[in-house]
């Protein structure tokens, strides 16, 4: 199994550690999910149900504390690893809100990231010509002008551009598990098609996907094998492609009531 999440519980710690424990909130409340290589899974669910939190906990974002449950990634205890180690082992999170880093050219960021991962894996650094070849190929596939890579990471990028760049990073880093948090939000119709093509091009037997989305439209382009409904920090129902269509028609009302 590529990813195996069992009964995961996680809380948010307030910024100030000295604050009363009253500030602690449980967001993930016993979440279980398994993804095999080659599969595409989609998670849908109402706002605030914990979808992004789940992706953050998987990527190792500080500020969350796992209180119960286990996460195995390629047979390893994922939760024991630093975020950069998770990335080097092939976990990739496309952020719902990509972060700006002023003054750092995108090109440099990508090169540093790629080589940092290779170093952590004990591989040789990629030479500049090889790196440039890789970048040229991937930017062409995604219809991203090279000029954008000379700009600082995400600074002044439009919402859609940021999302497209996340997919570029994914294409360059070649992870084995791709978590895409609302990669479709903010994309125009053409961009959605391009991004979906980019993702589809990466689909392979040794790679798994977890799509977080609100819109079944994305799933027209990237066809999932499994669809899960997440409500209040739990997967409350799983099904096939048709579940997304059903949700689109009927909303989450029935699940909300059941969970309450």
């Amino acid at each position: 199994m590529l990813l195996e999440v069992k009964d995961l519980r996680a809380v948010v710690r307030p910024e100030d550690e000295n604050e009363e424990d009253a500030g602690v909130r449980e967001i993930l409340k016993g979440l279980s999910l398994s993804i095999a290589s080659g599969e595409v899974h989609a998670i849908m669910g109402p706002n605030g149900s914990g979808k992004s939190t789940f992706s953050h906990v998987l990527a190792g974002k500080p500020g969350y504390e796992v209180t119960d449950g286990t996460v195995q990634f390629k047979g390893e205890d994922l939760l024991a690893l630093e975020p950069e180690e998770r990335a080097a082992r092939g976990l990739f999170l496309a952020f719902q809100y990509p972060v700006e880093i002023p003054g750092v050219p995108y090109m440099q960021f990508l090169k540093v990231a790629l080589n940092a991962q290779r170093k952590l894996r004990g591989e040789e650094e990629l030479s500049t010509p090889d790196f440039m070849r890789l970048i040229r190929e991937k930017t062409q596939q995604l219809g991203i002008p090279m000029d954008m890579l000379r700009r600082a990471v995400n600074v002044g990028f439009s919402g859609g551009e940021k999302k497209r760049m996340e997919v570029l990073q994914m294409a360059v880093l070649q992870p084995s598990l791709c978590i895409l948090d609302e990669i479709d939000s903010g994309l125009d119709i053409d961009a959605l098609k391009i991004v979906a093509d980019g993702v589809n091009a990466l689909r392979s037997e040794d790679r798994g996907f977890l799509l977080i989305t609100h819109y079944q439209r994305l799933l027209d382009y990237i066809e999932p094998d499994h669809v899960h409904v997440m409500v209040r920090g739990r997967i409350v129902r799983s099904g096939g492609r048709e579940l997304a269509l059903e949700l689109e028609r009927e909303g989450y009302a029935a699940y909300q009531e059941a969970a309450a």
Binding site: I101, P102, A113, L120
Partner: peptide, 20 residues
């Protein structure tokens, strides 16, 4: 965190951000 999620260890990430 954004840098680390891309595989860049913390100290290197600080250096990268400061260089920017």
């Amino acid at each position: 965190f954004y840098c680390r999620a891309r595989g860049i260890p913390e100290e290197e990430a600080v250096a990268l951000i400061v260089n920017g």
